[in-house]
């Protein structure tokens, strides 16, 4: 095989070493630092972006928690306001109901009083008219004068009996 010919070994060994060293030095001095730099720069940028994104996510989480707290506070406040409003409404309703009941009671009392007055007035009128009618009727029946005191007495007794027999008014 021609590869085993020792004649050219020294030259090949020498130039292999020189060529490889040249390549190693040039790559190591000029080319690889550029590649390594740009890779590091990109890695750094990606790291910064990730860090930035992490910060933003943390901020968003904080904001979210803050909003949740605020919402909870607003809910509490609204509930409190609602409870107070409900309580005020209930109190107002009870107050109105009490006033209304009082008014109704008062009206009822007035009505009873007026009714009573009217009744008594009616009774008085009835008595007066009845006494006249009874006197006239009795005088026509017996053709003699009846004393006013007797008629009054009879009338009283009739009315009392009428009152006893008739149902009571409320």
């Amino acid at each position: 095989m021609p590869q085993f010919d020792l004649t050219f070994f020294t030259a090949q060994i020498f130039w292999t070493l020189v060529s490889f060293l040249v390549l190693f030095l040039v790559l190591g001095r000029w080319v690889l630092p550029r590649i390594a730099d740009i890779l590091n720069e990109r890695t750094q940028l990606i790291k910064e972006e990730i860090e930035d994104a992490r910060h933003k996510r943390e901020e968003a989480e904080e904001l979210k928690l803050d909003y949740a707290d605020k919402l909870a506070a607003i809910d509490g406040e609204a509930k409190k306001m609602f409870d107070e409003s409900e309580k005020r409404l209930i109190e107002r309703r009870e107050q109105l109901m009490a006033e209304w009941k009082e008014e109704m009671e008062r009206k009822k009392r007035d009505f009873h009083e007026e009714t009573e007055v009217a009744r008594q007035m009616a009774m008085r009128d009835i008595r007066a008219q009845s006494a006249d009618l009874i006197t006239a009727a009795t005088e026509q029946l017996i053709h003699q004068k009846v004393g006013e005191a007797e008629i009054q007495k009879m009338l009283e007794e009739s009315i009392e009996e009428l009152e006893k027999s008739s149902p009571k008014n409320n």
């Binding site: 050219f8 020294t10 030259a11 090949q12 020498f14 130039w15 292999t16 060529s19 040249v22 390549l23 040039v26 790559l27 080319v31």
Partner: peptide
């Protein structure tokens, strides 16, 4: 250290890479 075809193509390889 004669320049042979091995050396020439080795240089060309190095030049190509660089």
């Amino acid at each position: 250290i004669s320049i042979s075809n091995t050396v020439v193509f080795m240089w060309l390889s190095v030049l190509l890479v660089i």
